[in-house]
Design a protein around this nucleic acid. Structure first.
Length: 714
DNA sequence: GGAGAGGGCGTTTTT
DNA sequence: CGCCCTCTCC
């Protein structure tokens, strides 16, 4: 069978597929057939006689890589044996494991997840006696945020905190000390975090020339997807693997860069032609995904961006239906209206072809309740993950200990069920084991029967042949009573999760690989896309996917955009791109939900909301507005034509925000005057709650509390 | 040093 | 409202 490049691809796509030699950068607008291009390029290479084992495909999720490879196999009509595909992290893990001794881990290492890393931060903080009794001392999650941000952006802790956490500046020295302690702790216990995977690989490739040459020779063709979301160290890895003259293709879209929070750097994609001399740049601009009215709306979202994008997507797909902006009275009725909309869509589309998107995982909870009540199955992406559940981590801790006896975190978990033994005692036992302090161990095992049983069990596990399914089976038998005692309320459900884990283990022959995959994207639920379930997803997890009908909920200020992104201009810009990504997922129908009030669990009541600025600024002619009537029904507003070609922002909402000023403190406004903000423009200062904080009423955006540094006084 | 009780506080996004 | 952290008592 021969692939039909001429008929299946447009000219730009064809060019990208055929340009196999030398560096190539593909700037691919949303829905422009980017995946298709990669798939055809894979197939084309193999058809040209390239050994599939010489191809490396780096993507953002493992799922994406698998899907591309299997689609290439389909059009090729034969399997791609030996092609390496996965995320940077999974590729790094596999390479590092083969060369562990070279990076200073003679006895291997254990990959930690986010919770492990946070716990170390806490441990180190306590050990250094920092922040004792200080309630405003940064929490472990914040500490880790600073640490990984500093690493991913390759800036000092000082620089990160100055830019992003100014209010924590009194703790700068403490955080720096904790960061050092965190690094030390990892080294002492043969632990590695997600960031280390990348940095260790970079170091390995930089220092080990024979290995670098070997890998360059092996991977003659490299393709990197979602290049706009790579960070500096990932770019260096690509450079090491490809060499400056290598056959490397980077694909991405600067308008869809949504991972700056984790160090992604758009400069990578923009400067690709500089780093790889003579790179061919190809732009894919025709959109094959969405009907034109949806593109009219998404183009408007980009038009409002501070950084201008040279992009105007167009499509041949016509539709008479405008995207809708729906205004439910509350987030509760929003859930009900979304269910109604799903039922309506279901008459036309399969459930799995309908998606509800949101900014943060918790925002779908009311909807999940409503869907369950009415009996619609759903599949959720984003939020809590399989391997993060406590019982899974418990079981895996035994497995980790068979491989790495220095894994103190695993010891702590494994001993959690022993009454009378807390973290301090665990550390002592750990030390006794590693210094052969028989006396202490005998004393402790006499005192705690459960400890003796545990140590015996671990010895037995280590004596077994390292086959994941067999070892896991034994662990589960041992863990069963612990599970029931620890989780009396819901252990049957957790039991099911453990059985699922056993299922996964069957397909592995290598323990390290099994553990690595679980931490690196191994959510078993995501493996198979359920046929008859509506998709609920965070926007981040929806990246690269598409659905016939897309609903976006909670488009209100403080939720989308996130409250944390309102202070800094660049954060708000990223929220805008996130909104762009969300809307461009839709093929046929798009509905934006803007609830007038949302439940606030702090106060226990519903708070009124302000519509998201991304909705407010849309010109009235790119959507149809729908209100929930007080009787519970929907009222369609007559569409208003905007005069002229220029968008007339906010005309549909003019006086909506005025009512909120009633809640402002009673300060004589005349004294405070006006100011200017980068994003919100000119506003009236109505209060100064703190010396460097101002409450400002921005016309069209409502009242904001803003740090003085971001305001220009007029 | 551990377990249990009381208080503050605040929900991003992911490998 | 629920989590997490700290304080207190054993």
């Amino acid at each position: 069978m021969s692939i039909d490049i001429d008929n299946e691809l447009n000219e730009a796509q064809r060019e990208a597929v055929l340009a196999t030699e030398g560096p190539v950068l593909v700037i691919a607008g949303a829905g422009s057939g980017k995946t298709r291009t990669i798939v055809y390029r894979l197939a084309h290479l193999v058809e040209q006689g390239v050994d599939p084992a010489q191809i490396l495909l780096l993507t953002f999720t493992r799922k994406a890589a698998q899907e591309m490879l299997s689609r290439a196999e389909t059009i090729l009509g034969r399997p791609l044996t030996g092609t390496s595909g996965g995320t940077f992290h999974s590729f790094a893990y596999a390479t590092l494991r083969r060369n562990a001794a070279d990076i200073g881990f003679d006895n291997g290492f254990t990959l930690m997840d986010r919770a492990d890393s946070e716990n170390i931060c806490k441990e180190v903080k306590d050990a250094l006696k920092l922040g004792k009794g200080d309630r405003s001392f940064p929490k472990k999650a914040t500490l880790l945020d600073m640490i990984t941000k500093s690493r991913n952006k390759e800036l000092t802790i000082d620089a990160v905190m100055e830019r992003e956490a100014y209010h924590l500046s009194p703790y700068l020295d403490a955080v720096t000390e904790i960061a050092d302690g965190y690094a030390r702790f990892k080294r002492e216990h043969a632990l590695v975090d997600y960031d280390d995977l990348l940095f260790l690989l970079d170091k390995l490739l930089a220092e080990n020339e024979p290995l670098r040459n070997q890998l360059q020779a092996r991977y003659r063709y490299i393709m990197v997807d979602e290049y706009q979301d790579t960070n500096l160290v990932q770019a260096r890895i690509v450079k090491h693997l490809a060499g400056t003259k290598g056959n490397v293709m980077a694909v991405g879209d600067d308008a869809q860069s949504i991972y700056a929070f984790r160090g992604a750097n758009v400069a990578n994609i923009l400067e690709f032609p500089k780093i790889f001399e003579g790179a061919k740049v190809i732009r894919l601009e025709q959109n094959y995904r969405s009907v034109q009215p949806i593109l009219d709306l998404t183009n408007q979202i980009l038009a409002g961006a501070t950084t201008k994008f040279d992009k105007n997507l167009y499509s041949d797909l016509k539709s008479d239906v405008l995207p809708e902006v729906v205004h439910p009275l509350s987030d509760q009725t929003q859930a009900r209206l979304v269910v109604d909309a799903v039922l309506e869509f279901q008459r036309k589309y399969m459930l799995h072809d309908i998606a509800v998107l949101f900014r943060a995982g918790y925002q779908s909870f009311p909807l999940e309740v409503a869907l369950t009540r009415i009996g619609i199955d759903y599949q959720k992406f984003g939020g809590i993950r399989f391997h993060e559940a406590a019982h899974i981590k418990d079981v895996l801790s035994y497995l980790r200990l068979t491989l790495n006896p220095h894994d103190l975190l695993a010891w702590q978990r494994a001993m959690d069920h022993i009454k009378g033994v807390g973290p301090k005692t665990v550390t002592k036992i750990y030390q006794a084991i590693h210094t052969n302090d028989e006396k202490y161990l005998v004393k402790m095992t006499k005192k705690h029967d459960t400890l003796r049983e545990l140590l015996n069990e671990l010895n037995a596990l280590r004596a077994m042949p390292p086959k994941p399914s067999a070892v896991l089976e034994r662990i589960l038998a041992f863990y069963q009573p612990i599970l029931m005692e620890k989780y009396p309320d819901d252990y049957p459900k957790r039991q099911a999760g453990l059985e699922q884990l056993s299922q996964i283990a069957v397909s592995y022959s290598d323990m390290d690989q099994f553990l690595g995959d679980l931490s690196l994207d191994g959510d078993p639920d995501e493996e198979k896309r359920k046929e008859n379930a509506v998709v609920l997803s965070t926007v981040h997890s929806a990246k690269g996917l598409e659905w016939s009908a897309v609903i976006i909920i909670d488009l209100v200020e403080d939720r989308f955009p996130s409250r944390r992104a309102m202070q800094r201009a660049e954060d708000l810009e990223e929220e805008r791109r996130l909104m762009y990504v969300a809307c461009t997922r839709a093929k046929q129908c798009l509905k934006l939900f803007v609830p007038s009030s949302v439940y606030n669990r702090a106060s226990g009541m519903s708070d009124p909301t302000l519509p998201s600025p991304f909705v407010l600024e849309l010109p009235g002619d790119v959507f149809q507005r729908v209100n929930e009537s007080y009787g519970g029904g929907l009222e369609r507003k007559q569409m208003q034509k905007t005069p002229g070609a220029t968008p007339s922002p906010r005309h549909d909402y003019g006086d909506e925000t005025a009512s909120t000023s009633a809640a402002s403190p009673k300060v004589d406004p005349s004294k405070l005057g006006f100011c200017k903000h980068k994003i919100f423009g000119k506003g009236k200062i109505i209060a100064q709650p703190e010396p460097n904080k101002f409450k400002v009423n921005f016309p069209g955006f409502g009242i904001k509390t803003i740090i003085g540094d971001y305001l220009e006084l007029l």
